[in-house]
Nucleic acid binder design. Structure first.
Lengths: 171, 171
DNA sequence: CGACATATTGATAGACCTCAAGAGAAGTGG
DNA sequence: CCACTTCTCTTGAGGTCTATCAATATGTCG
């Protein structure tokens, strides 16, 4: 039996999964939470690189790329588990904003503009928080001038670096 | 943009993931938290059945089975996210015990015996709880006669059905 | 402009964490 | 086999963060 551990720094750990005989465990790479594998008892583990899982000469958007994206999905899921298991409301909101910045942010003279297609409720349901807590955290960040808000769906990230620091990740 | 929602009953929802253009999203099946997909804005979504991802005539333990197990890993990760995002300490511990029962439980005249290879700290790090909370919850369950403990690693599940109810899942 | 949904703000309560002490289990060496 | 040490687990008291409940404000759309 082995455990897959995500490291959040400062002795904070999130065990993403336990694996038993016969299980396949995907160790995420290229995520902001470093992961390591530890045996809890004598174990035999076979390692495969995801690169080696499928044929080399890849057709454009073939099975290989599909597998890559499935593994990316799994990586985000691990990241979410670490966030939900070990982070404060402040860190969750900042982590969420940082991820949204990476995925749908538009640069515009210094700031990064986010047009969020989801409501506060949906943000809360994603981060394991209530809408009130989401709202209060955004207010705090606004008062710290880390972000600015405009209407319901637009958030301008004024201090991306500060946000990353508040997100409490390692990277 | 679409959202993948896990339903925990009683209006509790965990949004497992948001997906943007080009993303692949795995919708878990055969997990205890039912998941549904919702569009947040006009979207075009292509659906693939995991069965159709790889060649039919499967060699024993070939690529097809490997993919199945990767998807199983992802399913457990989604389940963990729902647990971490929306469940109380009591529900987390019971959910954990139910999963361990399924994976390493031995039946023995009525009860189910668990020899847990992990420490309280590791259970806590998995469930997003402190060791103290884990310990207190186990004490409560012992006092309710849902479980019995013997030494550090052995837990006997006396009331599997009651445990499932306390786990707060839908299935 | 008016009506409704969504978001913000405030007051309170509760679940879980933190800190601290003690009990129990497991290993070591005589 | 029994001290002795060490680590893990349990139990208790108090504090903190977030949820809950309630009211108000703001945004959106007809």
């Amino acid at each position: 039996m082995v455990k897959l551990v995500g490291h959040l720094g400062a002795d904070r750990e999130q065990i993403a999964a336990f694996a038993f005989e016969g299980d396949v465990l995907v160790v995420p790479a290229h995520v902001s939470t470093p992961h390591t594998l530890h045996a809890l008892e004598d174990s035999v583990v076979h390692f495969l690189r995801s690169d080696d899982l499928l044929p080399k000469g890849r057709p454009a958007m073939g099975a290989g790329q599909l597998l890559d994206r499935i593994l990316a999905d799994l990586g985000r899921s691990r990241e979410l588990s670490a966030l939900l298991g070990r982070k404060s409301a402040r860190e969750r909101i900042c982590g969420f904003l940082v991820e949204m910045e990476k995925r749908i942010g538009r640069r515009e003279n210094g700031a990064v503009i986010l047009d969020l297609p989801m409501s506060r409720r949906e943000i809360g349901d994603h981060l394991g928080l209530t809408i009130e807590t989401v709202s209060r955290q955004l207010t705090d960040l606004r008062e710290r001038s880390a972000i600015a808000t405009c209407g319901r769906s637009r958030i301008d990230i004024l201090d991306p670096q500060g946000l990353r620091a508040l997100a409490g990740s390692v990277d």
